[in-house]
Design a protein around this nucleic acid. Structure first.
Lengths: 200, 200
DNA sequence: CTGTGAGTTCAGCAGATGCTGAGTTTTACC
DNA sequence: GGTAAAACTCAGCATCTGCTGAACTCACAG
């Protein structure tokens, strides 16, 4: 935990800042988001978040009454998986599976989304209310959408199955990093998993 | 954190106990195992483990130098998934999928294995060395076994795919508890997922 | 019957954590 | 200008954490 600040060790400037000097509140939310996803709910401390946002810990509490509230605000999902799914569903009916997998992996693999995803899954596993959040999102925004869009009767079941496969894929590839899935190319994985999604 | 101990609030009896009054060390390991799986590595505290084992916190440190050492000892895997898989592989070739899913769900659903599994996955997601443990186990004991047993060339890939689907299933059903998978019967789920495993 | 050491507990340190109350600036509005 | 409130910081309480040093108590070898 080395404090590698630039130079000054003098106490921070007090009082209200200029309007556009950079909105501290959003800085905090951003920092919280990173911290929560990187550490999980418990391990992410308010102080660490404040440090990351370069802000006094008390200021965090000034904006958010408690940790849970900050968490709720910070966890506005990062990427918009619903859009991804939607576009994957546009393609020709008989390559939906491969398309879906490819799209999902591509998005996840770009930028820092990767850690975010497994962070999300991790905290969801650890906390009931986080799990509820994730569940609601999955069901209403993704599964529901898939189910209705495809216009089959047992769509719910099929959508659930699809989600299982994809979440599992994420965990094996990014979380546990089991070979050969961990280092295979996106195309390779898609070719493997795609048909299954298709079947569902 | 209400201390609902039975009755006595007098200080615990000191000194050495009778040989068979119950081996404290194994009590501790058992308690640690439960605690780690239920809470994850960080969240499980030495004190909580000691409390669960009905033992003084210091005694835990007497036997194990630090938390990591206790963890290492406690995490000797609980159920023997390798055996499950093995027996599922015995059946007729064209119902392996359904059998596998059924077997897996049945085992997990019995007793307290359920929390254990998702606990394991959670801590594996949170800590590199735990992930390594889990990975090694999955690869060598399960996937390897499946791959060779089925005598196909790209067995590694297929086994990985199977594991993905199953881990994903666990998470969706037990971790995130998304409907309808969460409350569907084992048979129903097996009927849905089985064929996919089969395909792999 | 005595000594010794294994088994057990007590009390406590140093550090981190969530949260609070009161203070200090600064900005916006009239 | 003056003023009210927004934006910010300080210092600290209460509680938890992992870990330690020393003490106490007893089972057993001699």
């Amino acid at each position: 935990m080395a404090e590698s600040s630039t130079t000054s060790m003098e106490p921070r400037r007090r009082g209200r800042r200029k309007a556009r000097e950079s909105d501290a509140r959003t800085l905090i939310v951003a920092a919280a988001s990173k911290e929560f996803l990187a550490q999980g709910y418990d391990a992410a401390s308010m102080r660490a978040i404040a440090r990351r946002a370069e802000v006094d810990p008390a200021l965090v509490h000034h904006y958010f009454d408690d940790k849970a509230e900050l968490f709720a605000e910070a966890m506005q999902l990062p990427a918009r998986p619903d859009l991804i799914v939607r576009s994957a569903l546009q393609g020709p009916r008989d390559s939906i599976g491969v398309n879906l997998v490819t799209a999902a992996l591509t998005v996840v693999e770009s930028g820092k989304n990767r850690e975010r995803i497994i962070g999300l899954i991790r905290t969801a596993l650890g906390h009931d209310f986080a799990a509820t959040m994730l569940r609601q999102f999955l069901v209403s925004e993704l599964m529901g959408r898939i189910a209705t869009e495809l216009e089959v009767d047992d769509g719910d079941f099929r959508a659930n199955a699809v989600a299982s496969q994809i979440v599992g894929l994420f965990i094996v590839r990014y979380g546990v990093k089991a070979e050969p899935f961990a280092s295979a190319s996106i195309e390779e994985v898609a070719r493997r998993i795609g048909p299954v999604i298709q079947w569902h």
